[in-house]
Write a protein that binds this DNA or RNA. Structure first.
Length: 108
DNA sequence: GTTTTGACGTAGC
DNA sequence: CGCTACGCCAAAA
């Protein structure tokens, strides 16, 4: 173990376990991993997750804002994907984010 | 080994 | 209500 991919792998696992039509935040994942201070690391990991089986579009910031949508191809792909899963997006923000919020601590 | 950066978060002004 | 500044951690240069 002791591999750098370990931290990334954990992020991938958590994100990959997000139920369909649900959303979570970087801080929630980071907090589940150990420290919510690692929120930035989660985003960093998701950046490396691009091209993997990790649905990074289900991960938004604490405000439910699609901060990472700029990293997706196009400009509405992330919002489109979420809406395709039943998540309503308004002004680059998840509608009823609080209700759609999926906390890894609850399921894991 | 040091420096920079980053898809965050919280606090302060 | 909006922007700035700082913190915190990990990876890449």
């Amino acid at each position: 173990m002791s591999k750098s991919e370990d931290f990334f792998a954990r992020v991938y696992e958590v994100v990959h376990q997000i139920p369909h039509g649900r959303v979570t935040s970087y801080g929630a994942i980071a907090a589940y991993l150990g420290s919510k201070k690692s929120s930035r690391i989660v985003g960093y990991a998701l950046n490396a997750a691009a091209g993997t089986d990790v649905p990074a579009h289900r991960v938004v910031n604490r405000n439910g804002l699609l901060t990472g949508k700029h990293h997706f191809p196009g400009s509405t792909m992330m919002a489109d994907l979420l809406q395709s899963e039943g998540v309503s997006i308004k002004d680059d923000q998840v509608v009823d984010f609080k209700s759609l919020f999926w906390d890894p601590r609850i399921n894991l």
